[in-house]
Design a binder for these strands. Structure first.
Lengths: 151, 151
DNA sequence: AAAAATATTTGGTTAAACCTAAATTTTTTC
DNA sequence: GAAAAAATTTAGGTTTAACCAAATATTTTT
């Protein structure tokens, strides 16, 4: 309905999965691949791709494939940034092993606000990688502007 | 359907609201009160009370009122414990003001695991109150047993 | 080019969370 | 204590998300 509306949790999950496979792992993203990872039928994946396309996050050509748009890429990076900053928080404050930190982060990353992510980021001096060494995408506002999210 | 099934996010919200009004504030909980706080119609509140009753979390007598069961009380305390431990984490690590910490915690508390709550609890030496001085309900396992959630 | 594999479309289901309007029960007021 | 007002519940919806199976369409392999 709303062309550029916000993402649901599942849509966010599909989007970041596509991003990681496509951009970080340089693999082709097929309907079947995604359906196996998320344990849903291929039909469900197709439906999800269509929804992401309607929101201008991917370009979707039936039978051919899916490609992230600029907005889709930015959105995925934002989501992964939040995830990886949460991992960082858990490791730094409570000595979580990276894998456990990742599991915990996965449960809440979608619900975590940008402001919280930025505050974690500032607190730990804008880390460039998460505990498992994956990139934490820089956020201009967080790095360069005064962080007044807290006060 | 499932009599003792898990809570949805909204159900958790209704339950903790009832708990706070009834147990912490010693107020009578009416359909209208809840409907005003959550900005839904009274009919929706009734429906929610019925669902909580089906899951044995409250005793619900139509037109008369609602009363938390032992299970309902325990469940509400668990949820509030998680919320307040998250608040604690944000204040201790990032110097959040309590009110902001509360807002952030509200977004994620339902999705946060028991294990994470326990780890925060252990890390900060089992605090008995949250930053806004509300009770953090004790958890026997967390306080007395060796905490092996991390390793 | 036929068969096999992959992907999409069609036409559903289920569950959560809400609503309005009508009916019921309780409470208030005269 | 009966009538009116207020509160609550019931009945009968809607919407949206997320899934599915079966049929159809397309692409790839043999």
């Amino acid at each position: 309905m709303d062309i550029d509306g916000t993402l649901t949790r599942k849509e966010a999950q599909y989007l970041t999965l596509v991003y990681r496979k496509q951009v970080e792992d340089c693999n082709r993203v097929t309907t079947t691949t995604v359906s196996r990872v998320l344990k849903v039928t291929p039909a469900t994946v197709t439906e999800s791709f269509q929804k992401l396309a309607k929101k201008n996050l991917v370009e979707y050509t039936p039978y051919y494939g899916i490609k992230l748009t600029e907005r889709g890429t930015a959105e995925a990076q934002k989501l992964l940034r939040r995830h990886r900053l949460l991992e960082t928080l858990f490791v730094k404050t409570m000595n979580y092993p990276p894998k456990k930190a990742c599991n915990e982060a996965s449960k809440i990353d979608y619900y975590c606000s940008e402001a919280l992510a930025n505050n974690i980021c500032s607190t730990y001096n804008h880390p460039v990688v998460c505990p498992c060494k994956k990139e934490i995408y820089a956020d201009y506002d967080c790095k360069h502007l005064k962080n007044d999210a807290v006060w």
